[in-house]
Design a protein around this nucleic acid. Structure first.
Lengths: 217, 217
DNA sequence: CCAAAAGTGTTATCCTTACACCCATGA
DNA sequence: TCATGGGTGTAAGGATAACACTTTTGG
């Protein structure tokens, strides 16, 4: 589960939700949330159930299947196969967390249990790719937002500075974002009030199969 | 497993290898090759083992994980989860097939067992997407080839007519294909002899994250 | 010499980045 | 009226599709 955190600060950062193991093996290391699949549920239902134990699942705006990790010795004990998912939580949400659970910046991960570090890396790669040619940003941004906030969401996720002006035009041309018509109040230090936007659709969609958001330079 | 078949004919076509069920349930319908995972192997090893029973696995140039199908009732009997893979066989290869196994054009599938039809559709979508921004064509094309053959491979896979000239320049600029220096003999009806090419790398590689092969029009 | 197939040159178009400039607001 | 951020205009660059034109071969 990813979320862009610190949208009000100067440097918002993409975070991942981790859970610290209380027992051996790998005690003290951090894990992705998850658990066993029951016989009467499919993987998506299972993941939703697992996550419900950690957070308010209502806040999960997107959930998508990723790779399967199946090395026979990936965890000690009986053979276990991990099917990983990408979950996204919109930015202003602040889910209640159990005490053993914390958000961690993806660029500064703590010691990770088993093969969970490559899992996070893989998930981030998929997310970055999809920011280019889908409207997946809806699942990370607030329902209504100012362009500079959206730019922060994209910058934090992609890992490089995005130009607000061009982001606006690219997303407007693709009809990914829409003006609400209202404007936000200007900050305490003055400045022109910004127009409010929302995502045109609050459902995952491939907006332009061949589109690109290129890094600067 | 996909292969472009009929490269020498006027209209080469993308095919998928299917196997006809001899027993209930779904007797007579066609299945993707596969089988159960053993405790001491990971998914890739397992798939290679399963396929070895159908074809010469040496001819498998690319193998890649796709989606997991996990609906509890997707097959009758005990709960079974299917992890699907995309396998590619280069074009001139003609693997020996068991009698219950046949190549079928992906655009004209026979009655499919269980949820195997959407599996094929999903695999083809992934393949088409990857033709644009990776060198995955190496796994479908002959080791050495003439540009018009490569155009046929791309056309069959993508499902629309590709322009030879532009394909050449796109792939050369990305350094995906290389001239061998030799030329093929011209056909019986005359014509200038064509230069032979090969793929620069015989390993899967993302060549240009933001590249596109757009359909005509 | 002609048909056929391969290969090259050139243009038009589209998308995106970069950046200068204008606009609206609070103090 | 000035600083601050928001918004628009415009130009430049890069990649691709379209297509006319040239080259090389067999009959």
């Amino acid at each position: 589960m990813f979320q862009v955190r610190g949208l009000d600060s100067r440097q918002p950062v993409l975070n991942v939700l981790l859970w610290q193991r209380a027992l051996e093996p790998e005690r003290g290391k951090w894990s992705l949330p998850g658990g066993r699949l029951r016989d009467d549920e499919d993987l998506i239902s299972s993941i939703r159930r697992q996550l419900a134990e950690k957070v308010d699942v209502q806040q999960l705006a997107h959930l998508e299947q990723l790779a399967v990790f199946s090395a026979p010795d990936r965890v000690p004990g009986p053979r276990t196969i991990a099917s990983t998912f990408l979950g996204l939580v919109p930015s202003p949400a602040t889910p209640e967390l159990p005490p053993d659970t914390r958000w961690h910046p993806v660029n500064d991960l703590p010691p990770m249990a088993f093969d969970h570090a490559p899992m996070v890396e893989h998930a981030r790669t998929r997310l970055v790719a999809k920011m280019s040619y889908t409207n997946i940003g809806f699942a990370l941004a607030p329902t209504e937002f100012v362009l500079s906030s959206l730019r922060d969401v994209y910058s934090a996720t992609l890992g490089y500075q995005v130009d607000t002006t061009n982001l606006q035009r690219v997303l407007e041309r693709r009809n990914v974002i829409t003006r609400t018509g209202t404007t936000a109040r200007s900050g305490r230090s003055g400045g022109r009030p910004a127009a409010l936007y929302r995502f045109t659709e609050a459902r995952y969609r491939v907006t332009d199969e061949f589109a690109a958001l290129r890094p600067p330079g």
